[in-house]
Simulated scan of single mutants.
Amino acid sequence: MTLTRDDLGDAIVELNQSFFVSPIGVIEQVNTTGSEFDNLISNGVQAYAHDVSGDCHHKYAIVDHSEVGSDPLVITGSHNWSSSAENVNDENTVIVHNARVANLYHQEFRGILNALNGGGDAVQDLGVRHWTLMPNPAREQAWVQGVNATDAVTVLDAGGRQVQLDVWRQGNVAQLELGALSPGMYHVVVTAANGVVTTTRLAVQ
């Protein structure tokens, strides 16, 4: 995907400064005239270069793939994020409001990140979350309540990499020790014995 529109680049930077939003993206043509790639990188956005022409021609955005209650969606189509696409070309844009589709696109996106930087595995099959996380935001500790004894509880950083932290289990509660984590957005991932994965965001202050 080509991203050359200043207003879109600035909007992503502004979102990245929000404590509860953590945009991550892959841009194909980072050296094209007017590319927003350097703007994103210099402002701390997790943007990755995939500058091999024709090898990564995807054009999509995924919103809230892991938050079933917040209307997960995918924005896709032929439309680059450029002025030519907006004002000159005959493009199409499709917006899909579907949690399953958003999760499938997220797996594909994680696969691309893996190929670029060896990041964490894609989130797998999306189930209905039966557990709660509190408090959120959190500082030193957080508790996952309602998990089964056979559920695996892990924490991923915004780049999809598993972080190392102590998890103490008692009954259907998992206590997460967050003191060693840097402030930012994380994902708490619960994997059931049957392989179904559910996630939610965790803001660490």
Rank of each mutant, 00 (worst) to 15 (best):
N89R: 14
N98H: 08
R129T: 11
V94Q: 00
V204K: 03
A102C: 06
N39D: 02
Y186R: 06
H106D: 14
F20K: 02
Q164M: 04
R5M: 12
T150Y: 05
Y186A: 02
G146E: 10
L178F: 14
A102D: 09
S42C: 00
H97F: 13
G119I: 03
N103D: 14
S53V: 06
R169G: 07
D90H: 13
L126K: 05
H65A: 10
V63T: 04
L202C: 08
Y105K: 06
V167P: 04
K59P: 09
R100I: 11
A193Q: 04
Q170K: 12
W81N: 05
S84H: 05
R5N: 06
V128D: 09
V21G: 01
L40F: 02
A49D: 03
V96Q: 02
N117Q: 11
Y186G: 01
A47S: 15
D90A: 09
A180W: 08
A142R: 02
H187Q: 11
S53D: 09
V173F: 08
D71F: 10
T191C: 07
D64H: 02
A158G: 04
L8K: 03
V63P: 01
E108P: 00
L116K: 12
H58Y: 12
A138S: 13
H79I: 07
I12K: 10
I27V: 15
H97V: 07
W131Q: 04
Q205A: 10
N80V: 05
P23T: 08
V21R: 08
A180K: 07
N16A: 05
V52P: 00
